[in-house]
């Protein structure tokens, strides 16, 4: 990982909400980011099943999509979410970490388009998928 990408990783892991959820960036380069969020009983949305709240999955998806945009060579700096849609395919298995891979697949002068998928330990069956549009900043 280059210095720039190391800095991007540190920046994302230092965002107060991402840090509070224990997110770790395992890779971030060329518009692709992979981020993991450990299981945490504070994030349970259904107390009967122990399944993590969709809201916490949204936070992970949003962070990972933003990270992918920041690491894209055509984006000059920061970014903000314009629109994010998440499809929830199944509940994440209680006790397991959730990992998201986001790919910034197209960038114009003003908008970055991103898609992402999230898994728990069962990598053949995604937990959720997302598509989003993000702002492009710092480019003339």
């Amino acid at each position: 990982m280059s210095d720039l990408l190391t800095r991007a990783r540190q920046f994302i892991e230092a965002l107060p909400h991402s840090r509070d959820l224990g997110m770790t960036v395992s890779s971030i380069e060329d518009g692709v980011a992979v981020i993991t969020m450990p299981f945490d009983p504070r994030l349970v949305g259904d107390p009967e099943t122990g399944v993590i709240s969709g809201g916490a999955v949204s936070a992970l998806m949003d962070t990972c999509c933003g990270a992918a945009v920041m690491s894209h060579p055509d984006n000059g700096g920061g970014t903000a979410t314009l629109d994010l849609r998440i499809d929830y395919m199944r509940g994440a298995t209680p006790g397991q970490a959730i990992t998201t891979r986001a790919e910034c697949y197209h960038v114009t002068r003003s908008v970055a388009f991103v898609r992402a998928t999230a898994w728990d330990d069962d990598t053949d069956n995604p937990v959720a998928s997302a598509t989003g549009a993000f702002t492009v900043e710092g480019k003339r």
Partner: peptide
């Protein structure tokens, strides 16, 4: 702990999504 971008500062987009959901 709900902050996303500390420079602005702004609520984390994921927090906004979670709150609405």
């Amino acid at each position: 702990k709900l902050i996303g971008n500390p420079m602005l500062p702004a609520l984390h987009g994921g927090v906004t999504a979670a709150f609405l959901e």
